[in-house]
Design a protein around this nucleic acid. Structure first.
Lengths: 146, 146
DNA sequence: TCCTTTTTGCGAATGATTTGCAAATATCGG
DNA sequence: CCGATATTTGCAAATCATTCGCAAAAAGGA
């Protein structure tokens, strides 16, 4: 596990230069629930670093993602916007409520099983999976009785 | 099953107007492997209907999707482009080869199980799942021995 | 510290998808 | 079959998240 490394050391271990912008991004992602898009990260970052630029956010999200420190996700059906979370958390999947926008994280061994089934049946080498669910959360499901 | 209905009847049943553009789109999707984006459909459509406009393609893909006749998909990691297929086929998922672009379709009961598990554990009502895998297909996996 | 490479801020570009609008077309009641 | 009404189409321009080019600034190694 590399989870205990400091942001600096994680960058170093990944062979990436340590910049204040990258450390800030990692800190913001760590402090949040991890479901932030570039724009939100930009606004949050500006609080501490007013001169930071949106392109810097985008560029570093890509760097951090390729370095394996950050994971890029899509939520719900609209994939026109990318979201990011730290890659340090355990493998999990996301359900998004289309009504209230709440994101419910869950784990399941079934996706891993889909992967191995796919690998066995079709002899493919899976490198990446994009998986997300949407629907209504308990709070937004219309109840028959009060 | 509504699979046996003609395109006209499927549009009618869905309460949508029957236009030559919509019929053409349904025909093109039916004739293809179903993994086409708006631009490809546009080019194909122009063969038969030179005056058709790209916005018409986009608008009708949305109409047909909301009417349940067409399903919108994402393939591989790049979700900047949407693809479409007829919604008449059985529930299935896609694996995309990042090398040659080939798409392998597969079925699995495990996703349905994820749905019911999720419903049971978190009491959520899944309306839609977006699932896609990418990697190397058998033809593109480097072999150790010839 | 000096040099080389990488990163940053800035502004402009990209590219898929959307939208406003007036003309054309589909549906429906008679 | 015909005309009124609602919808759809073609066209051109707009959106909007993301990317890119470039010169100045910062990082890492000798």
């Amino acid at each position: 596990m590399t989870t205990s490394l400091s942001p600096e050391d994680r960058l170093r271990a990944a062979g990436q230069r340590i910049t204040s912008q990258r450390l800030l991004l990692l800190r913001l992602l760590d402090a949040s629930d991890g479901h932030l898009d570039a724009e939100s990260l930009f606004h949050a970052a500006q609080q501490e670093m007013p001169e930071i630029n949106l392109s810097t956010i985008y560029r570093n999200l890509e760097v951090l993602t390729r370095a394996g420190l950050v994971a890029q996700r899509y939520f719900a059906r609209d994939h026109s916007r990318e979201y990011f979370e730290l890659a340090t958390t355990a493998e999990h999947y996301h359900f998004t409520c289309t009504q209230c926008g709440k994101i419910i994280e869950f784990e399941t061994p079934l996706i891993a099983q889909v992967r191995s089934d796919l690998k066995r049946q079709h002899n493919v080498n899976i490198r990446h999976a994009c998986i997300c669910f949407e629907g209504l959360c308990p709070d937004c499901i219309p109840q028959s009785q009060p």
